[in-house]
Structure formats: C-alpha cells, structure tokens
Design a protein around this nucleic acid. Structure first.
Length: 200
DNA sequence: AGGAAGATCTACT
DNA sequence: GTAGATCTTCCTA
C-alpha cells in the first residue's frame, strides 16, 4: 500500500456507541510515524468500554485524572499502564457520554523489522497479538496520551482499511474482573494475530 | 505505604 | 494449555 493512500478516519466515526466503533474499527489501519519510518498494523481485535455503568471501565468510579480523557473529545488516544504494559485506546462515545475502545491486536503490515527490534523478538507471530505487545511493537507510551488519532499529522493515527471482506466474531472481554452481559470484544475470524482464539 | 490494574513471559505438566 | 512470578503506574488510606 502506498503512503499517499492513507486516509484518516474522521472524528464523526468515533461519535457513536463504543461497541459499534469497536466492531467497525476491525480491518482499519493503525499508523505510527517514527522519524522517517512508517509502522502500520491492521486492527484485528478490539474491546468496547463504557462509563459509570461498566464495572470493567476505568471510568466506572467517575472522572479522575487517569480516565478524564474518556469523558472528552472523541478520536483521541487514551493510554495507561496495566501490569507493566501500556495499553492503547481510542476515545469513542455519543455526544455527552463516556467511553473508549481498546485496541487488543494488530496484524503487522509495514515496518515489521522495526517492530521486531522494539519487541526484541524475531517471532512475527508474537509481535502484535496482544494489547501490551502492540504498544511495544509500535513504541507507544504515555507520551502519546491525548494525541489526536484522526489527524494525519500526528505521529500516530488511524487510517481507513481496504474494505476487504471478513467475518467478525465476538466474546466477553478478556482479563476484566467483572464484565457486562453484552459481548464487547470483537475480532476477525481465523486471523492468527488475534490474542486468544476462544474466550467464554 | 499498600494494593489494584483491560497483561506477558517462562517453565512446566 | 495452565500456573506462577513479575511487570509499572496511579489511586486511596
């Protein structure tokens, strides 16, 4: 894919129910610019998080400095640390509400050798098949918290996919201590970079 | 100061 | 595939 074909997804896309955004993000590209290099991964697994009605959400107990981005403008990166890993979310919710979508896995598309260096492994299969792994592979840390993911001038943004067809599966969210009834994890069927094949 | 948190790695059965 | 150690910040006391 040529760089000039990269088309950022506009802000309006993220101004919806996080579950819809999570599902529709599958197949699109996460683009990371580092110096003169471009690292690109296709989004293959996501999870949606809500506000005070969602016990698994960072925003469950209300607005704190940690999660205030979830209450604000959509389309921004929301990054925080869990168990020693940086996790990347994009803020998404209808107007006046609260929410975000966690990016859980990517399929490496471009800049794979650089990703291997950041991940300190030659194993392509374990490069970006988890939320903490993909941030490592793309060198994403707290510094990028709050960056606008809808702007092509950002050092990280989300770009339109190529519109290919694939089947989408869903499951409960992974690793959360208390989940909602609704299935809020979405992933591309049979993609080997999905972090877990099945999850009850 | 202590503990929880949306995970990962390694070393086994 | 599962178990256990370890990971690093931020929140609460």
């Amino acid at each position: 894919m040529g760089n000039n074909r990269l088309k950022p997804i506009p802000k309006g896309f993220y101004l919806r129910d996080p579950a819809d955004v999570a599902r529709d993000l599958l197949g699109n590209f996460l683009v990371r610019r580092i110096r003169n290099h471009l690292l690109i991964g296709k989004i293959v697994e996501t999870e949606a998080y809500y506000g005070k009605d969602d016990p698994a959400s960072r925003a469950f107990k209300g607005k704190t400095r940690l999660c205030e981005l979830m209450f604000g403008e959509v389309g921004k990166a929301f990054i925080y640390m869990v168990h020693g890993n940086w996790l990347l979310n994009v803020v998404a919710h209808p107007k006046g509400e609260v929410g975000a979508v966690l990016l859980r896995a990517l399929e490496p598309i471009k800049g794979i050798e650089i990703m291997k260096k950041f991940r300190k492994t030659p194993e392509i299969n374990s490069l970006t098949n988890g939320p903490g792994k993909l941030t490592q592979a793309l060198n994403i840390t707290k510094e990028l918290n709050g960056v606008d993911l809808t702007s092509p001038s950002s050092t990280i943004f989300i770009s339109k996919g190529e519109g290919e067809n694939f089947e989408i599966l869903s499951s409960h969210r992974i690793g959360v201590t208390e989940d909602l009834k609704k299935e809020l994890r979405f992933f591309i069927k049979d993609n080997i970079f999905v972090s877990r094949k099945s999850f009850k």
